[in-house]
């Protein structure tokens, strides 16, 4: 299969790769670039574990062809912490015990980040809506909802 050149920004650093045409972004990130924070759950766009942020929008990396990402700005959970300090969402997931097996956590955090980027003080219903594309088997969702609300509160306190 023909290789195609792909260039994009991943968590602030430039990436340039020759990748098989037809490769998904999920596969490229995990197996080519080595960022394993997006998880492959269903590979059909229904579980949300592979969620990443592309140009500010929440996207499913398992359904995104990497060729369509030329010039894009992509964020994954592995790029969230700065100088060893966890992002407020990561901190809140830890503090509210919102993760057990951890497989859904990166996707949940990306979905929550897009919500908080657009809606800094979301209602409970807005949090539920934002997380509704992500499946969790362990937590029963309530701790995750609480984590997102907690992160929103800590953000607004820091801003004040």
């Amino acid at each position: 299969m023909a290789k195609v050149p792909v260039q994009f920004t991943l968590n602030g650093s430039e990436k340039a790769e020759f990748i098989d045409s037809g490769t998904t972004l999920l596969h490229a990130l995990r197996d080519k670039i080595g960022d394993t924070s997006p998880k492959g759950g269903c590979h059909q766009g229904t579980c949300g574990a592979c969620s990443v942020i592309i140009d500010g929008e929440l996207r499913l990396s398992c359904l995104t062809l990497v060729e369509t990402c030329n010039g894009a700005v992509i964020s994954t959970t592995s790029g969230l912490s700065e100088a060893g300090v966890l992002h407020p969402l990561q901190r809140a997931f830890l503090d509210t015990f919102a993760t057990q097996c951890g497989f859904c956590t990166p996707g949940m955090i990306m979905a929550a980040k897009v919500l908080l980027d657009h809606t800094p003080n979301p209602s409970r219903d807005e949090v539920i809506e934002a997380l509704s594309g992500n499946i969790c088997r362990c937590t029963g969702y309530e701790p995750i909802i609480q984590a997102v609300l907690t992160a929103a509160r800590s953000n607004s306190q820091n801003a004040a």
Binding site: C42, Q44, T46, C47, V127, I128, E129, L131, S132, I135, R137, G140, Y141, E142, I144, I145
Partner: peptide, 17 residues
């Protein structure tokens, strides 16, 4: 036929617990 059609309650279906 796969886990996509395996139903579970989502974050909007939670009972007061």
């Amino acid at each position: 036929t796969d886990f996509n059609q395996y139903l579970m309650p989502g974050p909007g279906d939670l009972a007061e617990t």
